[in-house]
Amino acid sequence: MIVKEWCSFCGECAGVCPRNLIQVREYSLVFKEDECRDCDTCIKACPINALEKED
């Protein structure tokens, strides 16, 4: 997952992750990418489009 520089760390992505794989820490997001199933729920939930998949 790529977090763009304009991420506000609002926690919307963490709140919708069905597997609870995202944690909001002080000025950062921590992803458990090895357990992610690429459902894109977090990407769709971001109100400012600050998340995208890594190629």
Rank of each mutant, 00 (worst) to 15 (best):
M1R: 10
M1N: 07
M1C: 13
M1P: 11
I2C: 02
I2S: 04
I2Q: 13
I2A: 10
I2E: 12
V3A: 11
V3L: 14
V3H: 11
V3Q: 11
K4P: 05
K4G: 07
E5I: 07
E5L: 10
E5D: 15
E5F: 03
W6S: 08
W6R: 11
W6L: 10
W6C: 05
C7F: 14
C7R: 09
C7N: 11
C7M: 10
S8P: 02
S8T: 15
S8Y: 02
S8I: 11
S8V: 13
S8L: 14
S8H: 06
F9K: 06
F9G: 06
F9L: 07
C10E: 07
C10A: 13
C10F: 08
C10G: 13
G11I: 12
G11F: 13
G11R: 11
G11A: 15
E12S: 15
E12I: 01
C13G: 10
A14M: 09
A14G: 15
A14S: 15
G15I: 01
G15V: 04
G15W: 06
V16K: 12
V16D: 12
V16P: 11
V16T: 14
V16L: 13
C17L: 12
C17T: 04
C17P: 11
P18I: 08
R19S: 13
R19W: 10
R19L: 15
N20L: 11
N20D: 12
L21V: 05
L21G: 09
L21A: 09
I22S: 10
I22T: 12
I22V: 15
V24I: 15
V24W: 08
R25V: 13
R25S: 09
R25L: 14
E26P: 09
E26L: 14
Y27M: 07
Y27G: 13
Y27S: 13
Y27I: 02
Y27K: 14
S28D: 09
L29Y: 05
L29P: 04
V30N: 02
F31C: 06
F31P: 01
F31I: 04
F31A: 05
F31V: 04
F31D: 00
F31N: 04
F31Y: 11
K32Q: 09
K32L: 08
E33G: 06
E33L: 10
D34H: 03
D34K: 03
E35Q: 07
E35S: 08
E35F: 06
E35N: 02
E35K: 08
E35M: 09
R37A: 04
D38F: 12
D38N: 03
C39A: 01
C39F: 01
C39S: 01
C39Q: 00
D40P: 02
D40F: 08
D40G: 04
T41W: 02
T41A: 14
C42E: 00
C42I: 00
I43F: 06
I43N: 03
I43M: 07
I43T: 05
I43E: 07
K44P: 00
K44S: 15
K44R: 14
A45F: 03
A45P: 02
A45M: 03
A45W: 01
A45K: 02
C46M: 05
C46H: 06
C46E: 04
P47H: 04
I48S: 07
I48A: 08
N49V: 00
A50S: 09
L51P: 03
L51M: 04
L51Y: 01
E52H: 03
E52Y: 03
K53C: 01
K53M: 08
K53P: 03
E54T: 00
